[in-house]
Design a protein around this nucleic acid. Sequence first.
DNA 1: CGTGTGTATTTTGTATACAAGATACACCAA
DNA 2: TTGGTGTATCTTGTATACAAAATACACACG
Lengths: 225, 225
Amino acid sequence: MSDYVDHEVGNPIAIKKESLHDQVATRIRDLIVEGYLEPGSRIDEGHLIEQLGVSRTPFREALRTLAAEGLVMVRPSKGSVVRKLSPEDVFSMLEVLGRLEQLAGELSCERATDEEVEALVRLHNRMLKLYQKRDRMPYFKLNQEFHTGLAALSRNPTLQEMQNNIQGRLKRIRFIGNNSADAWAAAVSEHENMVEALKARDGKRLGGIMAEHLRKTWERVRDSI
Amino acid sequence: MSDYVDHEVGNPIAIKKESLHDQVATRIRDLIVEGYLEPGSRIDEGHLIEQLGVSRTPFREALRTLAAEGLVMVRPSKGSVVRKLSPEDVFSMLEVLGRLEQLAGELSCERATDEEVEALVRLHNRMLKLYQKRDRMPYFKLNQEFHTGLAALSRNPTLQEMQNNIQGRLKRIRFIGNNSADAWAAAVSEHENMVEALKARDGKRLGGIMAEHLRKTWERVRDSI
DNA sequence: CGTGTGTATTTTGTATACAAGATACACCAA
DNA sequence: TTGGTGTATCTTGTATACAAAATACACACG
C-alpha cells in the first residue's frame, strides 16, 4: 500500500534518510517484479540478507510490509513465499481496478486543471512515439505512469493508493505479458480515446473507456498467466 | 490489508499458533479502533511493549504492517503516530468504498447462491430487531458484518480485501459518529432496499443503492469528524 | 525396499545489546 | 530575559544472541 512512512515531502533542503527497512522493501519489490524472485518460491532469508548486506531485523520488517501489500505470503514458522497469483486472482484485481480507474476517469474530468490535462496528453504523445518504434519496455513504463497520472488527477488519495497497490501486484504479470501486436495496437487506440474524452472533459465517457480498457486488459493477459 | 499470513484455513485439526507479531498487530488495531490510542498521538513504544509484555522486535514488525494498512504513520527516527484522518481523507475513502460496494452489489446478485442470500437476509432481520430496541453497539457490529458479508458474496477476493481495508480505517470514525435518530432510520430503510434488490437479484439496482448509501454515509458522519 | 522414529541441522521467532539519532535541558552570553 | 550552544537523556534503528520450531536425514525394523 502507500506505506505510511513520512518522507518529508516538499522539502528540498532536508536530506532524505531512508531507513534500511524501506530500502530493503523497495529492493525486494523490484526483485519480485523483475522476476528474480519467482512466485511461489520460498524467500531465503539467510541468503538474501547476505546479498543485501543487512541484518535480519530490517529484512523481516520489510517482509511484513510486503505481506501487507500482498506481494508475499508469510507462513508462520515456515518462512515466506512470493505470492503466486492465480488467474482468478488476476481477474478479480482487474475487475476492481476497472472500477477504480472508471472512478478516476470520472473524477479527473471534473477536478483536473487544464495544465494537468495537457501534461497527461503530452505523456500520451510520448507513448505514441514509443509505440511507433515498438519500444516495448519504455512504453510499458510510461503506460504505468499514464494510469497513475490519471488517478492523481482524481484528487482522491485513497483511490490513488488502492490503484497503486493493485498495479504493484499486477506489475509482474503485465511485465511478462507479451501481448501480441494486435493487442498492443488496440490498447494504443483505447488510450487515444481516453485522451479525447479527457480533453473534452467527458467524465462519463472516459470512465466507460477506462472500465472497458481494463476489461480488455484481462483478455490481453489471461493467456500469459 | 488482508495481511497475507497463512492461518491454515479450513483445517480444524491444526492448532493455530498465532505469532506474537500478529497478536500485537490485532491488539493495537483494537486499541486504535476503541480509541485508547488517539489519532495524531505518538505511539509510545517503551510503554506499550511493557503493557503488552513483548519485546521490541514483534512490536515493531506489527507497527510496519499497521503502517502498510494505513492505520499508523511511521516517521523515520521520530517514532510512529496513530494516523489522523482529515475530513478529505474520510470523504475520499467513502468515495472509493461507494464504488467498491456498488461493484459488490452487482456481482453478488450474479454470483451468490440462494442460501447465501437468505443468510444475509437473516442477518438483516437481526439488525432490524436491534434497531427496534435502539441497541446501537450491536447494530453497529452487525452492520459491519452485513457489508462484509455482501462483499463476500461478490466472490472477488480483491474487492473483499480493499473493502475490508477501508472499513478498518473508517471503523473508528463510524464507531464514534453517533448519527441522529433520523439518520439511523434512513440507513435502516436503505438497508431494506438493499435486501429487496438482492432478493430480486437486481444487480444494477443493488449497486445503485450501495453507491447512494455510501454517499449518504458521508453526510451522516461528516459532522462527527 | 518402504516406513517410521529419533537425532542433527537449519530456519524461524523473539529478546536483548549496542549504536546513532533526536529531544530536552541547563548554562552561558548578549 | 532571551537565544544559542553543548551535554545528558531518551528513542529509535540495526545487529546479534538465544530459544523454539521445523526440516532433513540416517538408521532400524517390518
